[in-house]
Design a protein around this nucleic acid. Structure first.
Lengths: 166, 166
DNA sequence: CAGTTTAAGTCAGTCTTGTTGACATTCCAA
DNA sequence: TTGGAATGTCAACAAGACTGACTTAAACTG
């Protein structure tokens, strides 16, 4: 089916045209990837930034603001605005650190967890459908290429998260 | 919790944990994907929006404004702001349509093509490295999952572009 | 032909999310 | 103990998206 050009495929499959198709696929797919949570959040006063914060706080409860902003790749000022509204609205709790009182440790409240579930359910449903359509083998390849595409420091952070999952 | 189906790797590989890893991989990879062009554009007065416009005008020379804004998924007001600066700066040419004079057909000037090359060279280099690291089989899977992740109407548009690529 | 629709552009205002700069608090090490 | 580094907050601003209202020109349609 797919293995064409025996011998020369390692050259053939790296044509500019093939690469460009990959670039465009990435662009369109990311739109689909964010579409469902975006729709949910559009109603409330929240956006993608809030989703990301909620996701990673859920992922690593008790994480500090500094941790979070490195993961998200934004300035602390930018993250702070998002965090402030989430705390005000009672979705996130911010606790002063015990050993280091400069730090704030972040946790989702019950309401925060409820929203997180709503958002990630939608995103997982999309992911699940795509995985099902493509099959297990394709999923393995998908993950390999994505990991290779990350910046080095982000790949490390991703690996840490991944390993902490189980 | 989850009942583990006997010999059911097709079930096992769709655990919430696996899906979540895919979601995070997508998030981090997209950051890498856009990092290089973003760095190049940061110096000039341009941003990601300009890159996208330039990319698709290069991809389909003579495309109309309406075509473009459907492809990009933004409003005409938003696209117009970007397009206006590109035309003013002599990177894009806007020609009144021959058969339908309401339409404007968009083309890159030489300067526009030069910038397009600079941007896509950087992005292709990243893509090429990721493809090389992951291997041909992984690339096929990568593309399959991405296509399955797109919204239906975008997938159609993506296919049209892909087929027009040669 | 008159009336409607379509394509493009513009103006004004808002929202989200990113940025810098200035600043307070806390910790730690010289 | 004092000065620097780390952590987080507040304020102001910019980019880029959005909606809504409107104009102009051209094409289509009954």
């Amino acid at each position: 089916m797919m293995s064409d050009a025996p011998g020369g495929e390692s050259l053939l499959f790296l044509t500019d045209e093939q690469l460009r198709q990959g670039i465009e696929a990435m662009f369109f797919a990311y739109r689909g990837f964010t579409a469902d949570p975006d729709r949910i959040l559009a109603g409330m006063a929240y956006g993608r930034a809030h989703h990301r914060a909620i996701h990673f706080i859920n992922r690593a409860p008790g994480t500090t603001v500094n941790n979070l902003l490195i993961l998200l790749g934004v300035t602390k000022q930018s993250l702070n605005r998002v965090l402030r509204t989430l705390v005000e609205d009672g979705l996130v709790e911010s606790k002063v650190g015990k050993s280091d009182k400069r730090e704030r440790h972040l946790y989702l409240t019950e309401a925060g967890e409820a929203l997180e579930r709503k958002l990630s359910d939608a995103q997982r449903a999309r992911m699940r459908a795509a995985y099902r359509a493509a099959g297990p083998q394709a999923v393995a390849g998908f993950r390999q290429v994505l990991e290779a595409m990350m910046d080095n420091d982000l790949r490390r952070k991703y690996q840490v998260l991944k390993d902490s999952g189980t």
